[in-house]
Computed example of a mutant assay.
Amino acid sequence: MPKGYVIMTEAIRDEAGMAAYGKASAASMAEAGARVRVVDPSPHVLEGEWHGDRTVVVEFASVEAARAWYESAGYQEARPLRQAAAVTNAVIVAGFEPPARTTGQEDSR
């Protein structure tokens, strides 16, 4: 089962409000087994336009675990703090798992 990732781009309007959100959301993230993988205030944009001034990537055991965290009562209490402090785009995506090689496959090179 592939891992699930929550990716948020944030246009922060209130740094203190975002700090309060971080504290308020920490317990729900720990409970969900989440691991923050990226917090980047200045991603290098290769093409197109990128929203916000910070990008955050949070890893979960699965897409279902990410969705359960996002919909959890603990996170729903913290979410309004983020919404008041930043304009955010958020998605849940599935990680990539390459197909398993079957035993006996020969290298075609």
Score class of each variant (00 low, 15 high):
residue 2 P to H: 07
residue 3 K to M: 03
residue 4 G to I: 00
residue 4 G to M: 01
residue 6 V to S: 12
residue 9 T to G: 06
residue 15 E to P: 08
residue 15 E to N: 05
residue 17 G to F: 06
residue 28 S to A: 15
residue 29 M to V: 00
residue 33 G to Y: 08
residue 34 A to D: 11
residue 35 R to N: 05
residue 35 R to T: 12
residue 35 R to P: 00
residue 37 R to M: 15
residue 37 R to Y: 01
residue 38 V to Q: 13
residue 39 V to A: 15
residue 40 D to C: 12
residue 40 D to T: 04
residue 40 D to M: 05
residue 41 P to R: 13
residue 42 S to C: 10
residue 42 S to L: 06
residue 42 S to W: 03
residue 44 H to W: 03
residue 46 L to R: 09
residue 46 L to E: 13
residue 47 E to C: 06
residue 50 W to S: 14
residue 50 W to L: 14
residue 51 H to D: 10
residue 55 T to S: 15
residue 55 T to W: 02
residue 57 V to H: 06
residue 61 A to H: 00
residue 62 S to M: 06
residue 65 A to M: 04
residue 67 R to P: 00
residue 67 R to A: 13
residue 68 A to F: 01
residue 70 Y to G: 02
residue 73 A to F: 02
residue 75 Y to C: 02
residue 75 Y to Q: 11
residue 76 Q to N: 09
residue 78 A to N: 01
residue 78 A to M: 03
residue 81 L to A: 07
residue 81 L to K: 14
residue 83 Q to I: 05
residue 88 T to L: 04
residue 90 A to T: 13
residue 91 V to H: 10
residue 91 V to W: 13
residue 92 I to V: 15
residue 92 I to G: 00
residue 92 I to W: 00
residue 92 I to F: 03
residue 93 V to R: 04
residue 96 F to M: 10
residue 102 T to K: 08
residue 105 Q to H: 10
residue 106 E to Q: 13
residue 108 S to E: 14
residue 109 R to Y: 06
